[in-house]
Write a protein that binds this DNA or RNA. Sequence first.
DNA 1: TCGTTTCGTTAGGTAGACTAACTATCGTGA
DNA 2: TCACGATAGTTAGTCTACCTAACGAAACGA
Lengths: 138, 138
Amino acid sequence: MAELAAQLRPSLLRLTRIVRNQRVDLSVTLTQISAMGTLKKHGPMSAGELATCERVQPPSMTKVLASLEERGLVRRETHPTDRRQVIVAITDEGLALLDSERRSRDAWLSQRLTGLTADERALIRKVIPVLDKLADQK
Amino acid sequence: MAELAAQLRPSLLRLTRIVRNQRVDLSVTLTQISAMGTLKKHGPMSAGELATCERVQPPSMTKVLASLEERGLVRRETHPTDRRQVIVAITDEGLALLDSERRSRDAWLSQRLTGLTADERALIRKVIPVLDKLADQK
DNA sequence: TCGTTTCGTTAGGTAGACTAACTATCGTGA
DNA sequence: TCACGATAGTTAGTCTACCTAACGAAACGA
């Protein structure tokens, strides 16, 4: 079990290193893309909820939201009844950028994926929910 | 295919975020551990080779090696015939630290892994070489 | 209504990567 | 043989992306 952990860790590390640096439009970072993707997928939510989804601490999300809002990619509104909360929603500009960014970013990973066999791709498809389960625990 | 890429990316990102921050001994970082692990696995090699193995640029490796050497965890020697090259080897102290660090670091991931079913663990075991293949291409 | 909790932000720090530019060394072709 | 391009590594500087600690404002509960 510990051996499996020891093998998985560096593999994750290296692949993420490569994926993160594969930046097409330098104006938006992978972290920002990921946050917008969550907003697109799950709809508007509070800053804290978004931080939890993204597995970062609230201050990190504050910074991400600040740059995204500055560029009009998300909207921050105060919660209708609880004025401590900030509700974040993705804008149309955000959606548009997300789409174009996703396409170009994914091109690279897609191309790598074509280098795999169909069986290997099927394996990856099946392991994604397991990785998410791993990240979600506790 | 692009869809698979889009799903894999944020999952990798989040899991790595968690794994990286799961630091037991704050004196050694995951990046340093990974470099030492490669040295342990493949034996002494040049700084450039190590950078290639770890998928980082040479200057990044220089920094990693500088802190590791300062703490006596690796040894830097000049190549016997080519004095441009620097051959890096892990020291006994490095091996010892690697062992203890690996144990405590892996404890966390291992515990997460116990939350999975045997099938899910088998899936992860099988996907590791595929992830490495993905990182190694080109 | 006053203390406690919660939510988000500010401030400051560190890790970890990059590029550009430099030094030292090597190898080669005129 | 020696001058010049290529290669290996380092230095310098920058940037992203996290973190923790501390803070202010709002909400809540006794």
